[in-house]
Design a binder for these strands. Structure first.
Lengths: 351, 351
DNA sequence: TTGAAAGCGCTAACAT
DNA sequence: ATGTTAGCGCTTTCAA
């Protein structure tokens, strides 16, 4: 390799390679001083620090990530594993992912993307190769095979979702059980006594993906406590499925005047169908959705909803990972309390 | 730092650190032999290779990513920049992203996620720090500020989308102009002579995000060539907007019997509205959508559509990046030809 | 408050 | 076909 002190530009991928030695030379200090000025791990005189910073700016220096990771055994990379086939609504996944990426940058970390089909080997690989120093797992299942692996490799990890055997592993999720309760309460408060929950597809319930079942539990229990007649139906999100589900509910219980819908695809379809069936919202029936704001706002009328706090979940997961990285304890589940936003789709029952 | 030859397990993040030296010792070869056995950059006898592979498996060895990147100036990481606020339909972005991640792994690469709000500095940073050795830019705009940066840092890069000043930079996209043509042709072939394109929100057209305008161009030109009366309307995806757009079209041109819709949110709404307005699809009107299959399939009736080849776009972008990394030329645009899938929403015009 | 220098684990000449 | 070894650019003792 050509020596660098001839001042010629390098034609490698990195362009002109500026090293810490270059910075040290220009600032007339040692390389360790530059390193410490950057990390703050030992006191540096104000005068020296300024000279160093100046040199860094002048030369456009960026520390080499690989060298840093080799010397410090810290990659400053957080791996995020996203299942290929997920139970969650894709825009929510995306929003969480972006929130994670943004949050990670505020801690000087970057996000590495892993697909679920790399499976447990993916986690092992990035851990063993030192590629990442923490892992975030999205859309975890009740019995997730990645959980034992996480324990085994003892790498800081946070899960988005609520598995049953989380044990000491930290996780972040919306409190879906409380969300179900909030919805039941809202409808009960408005005087509705015959209510129905339209949920996600039956296959999701079968796969035991925590969140779906938890909403049902919260909703049904609270409905019973409030003395409501309540029922629950899955729905796979196609128009025909939504139409079938609604038809059956209205046939079996024509008096149903309150709906909770936890299915982003079906939400807007439900509104069209109610209109088509001659039910005016919110005069005849009230609808409460558990969905991202975007979905609630593009329906007509705009939906009263419990929003999915995607941004908060992403940010929270990163924060927990960073805490673990700095040795702080973070065990247990962080359940975000639901928030009810009342819009135009719910109102007092008119008899 | 404690020496490793005392056999004690390390309690760092990486657990028991297995190095190439450990593998070499166990296989009774030199470290370079292990390295070459892994990279294939020089011939290794079958017997030796087997011993090495055996040792690697026995010890559970994974090369240290940082060390590798330092020694080889190749990080094996590809950065992907996704805009925070995008014009594209989010599930499509996600599918492209996942396809990229999966494709990258087949080349032994990993994907690093960058948000658009890191802006041009983000690209500079990952390039200068050697964090990534190629960049993929999603949802590029017609005049994208990241393009000059890409040139300046001379890092292999591929764009998803079709900017106007692409120059020699490779990009991948669906041929939206041809997609517009295909839709016009399909409707013309079915005997429709009064047709309308319902597009994305006006703000997207204003932002000049290539794809939207290109579809309109292809559609309008081909419609004219085929002697159709054609019109074009933006739509922002809310139910009220879709209803308004449709109402206006039907008021101004009651004879309109062919619709092209390039708006995922509005597609299912449009079907409900047509039903509500008493138009039977496909007997009274035909609808062709430019949208992902998932959207086409969850509508009722299922939509004739030009699918967005998300998976192909993601895979193609990675392939082009890999080609550049290995020194092959890849200049210019790769426009994926549209495919028309006829389903139940289009049929011969009945007068 | 600062400097000198020994690695971190790997790759790629340069040997043989 | 294989071994030896000099770095890659940084962090972090150990010294001063």
């Amino acid at each position: 390799m050509p020596s660098r002190d001839d001042g010629s530009a390098q034609l490698t991928g990195r362009g002109a390679v500026v090293t810490i030695a270059d910075v040290a030379e220009r600032a007339e200090v040692s390389t360790s001083t530059v390193s410490y000025a950057l990390s703050g791990k030992r006191p540096i005189s104000e005068r020296t620090r300024e000279r160093v910073m100046r040199a860094i700016a002048d030369l456009g220096y960026h520390p080499h990530a690989g060298a840093r990771s080799l010397a410090s055994s810290q990659s400053n990379i957080i791996a995020v594993m996203v299942p290929l086939r997920t139970d969650m609504y894709v825009p929510v996944i995306m929003e969480i992912l972006m929130a994670m990426t943004t949050a990670a940058r505020t801690y000087g970390k970057d996000i590495l993307l892993l697909t679920g089909d790399e499976g447990t080997d993916g986690v092992r690989r990035v851990a063993a190769s030192g590629l990442a120093d923490a892992a975030l797992l999205m859309d975890v299942e009740l019995h997730d095979e990645r959980i034992p692996v996480l324990r085994e490799i003892s790498m800081p990890a946070v899960m988005v979702g609520l598995p049953s055997e989380a044990g000491e592993l930290p996780c972040v999720d919306l409190n879906f059980e409380a969300a179900g309760e909030v919805c039941a309460d809202h409808l009960a408060d408005l005087g509705h006594d015959d209510v129905a929950l339209i949920g996600v597809s039956a296959s999701v319930y079968r796969r035991h993906t925590g969140f779906a079942a938890r909403t049902v539990t919260g909703f049904m229990n609270r409905a019973r406590e409030r003395g409501l007649r309540a029922t629950h139906r899955p729905c796979d999100g196609t128009f025909d499925s939504t139409a079938g589900t609604l038809t059956r509910i209205l046939n079996e219980r024509p008096a149903t005047s309150g709906f909770v819908i936890q299915n982003e695809e079906a939400a807007s379809q439900l509104m069209s169908l109610l209109r088509q069936f001659g039910r005016v919202v919110p005069q005849d029936v009230s609808v409460v959705a558990i969905c991202p704001d975007q979905v609630a706002l593009q329906s007509s009328p705009r939906l009263t909803s419990v929003p999915i706090p995607a941004e908060e979940m992403g940010r929270g997961a990163v924060r927990l990972a960073i805490m673990q990285l700095s040795g702080q304890a973070t065990a247990g589940a962080t359940l975000i309390p639901p928030r009810l936003v009342v819009r135009e789709s719910s109102g007092v029952r008119v008899r």
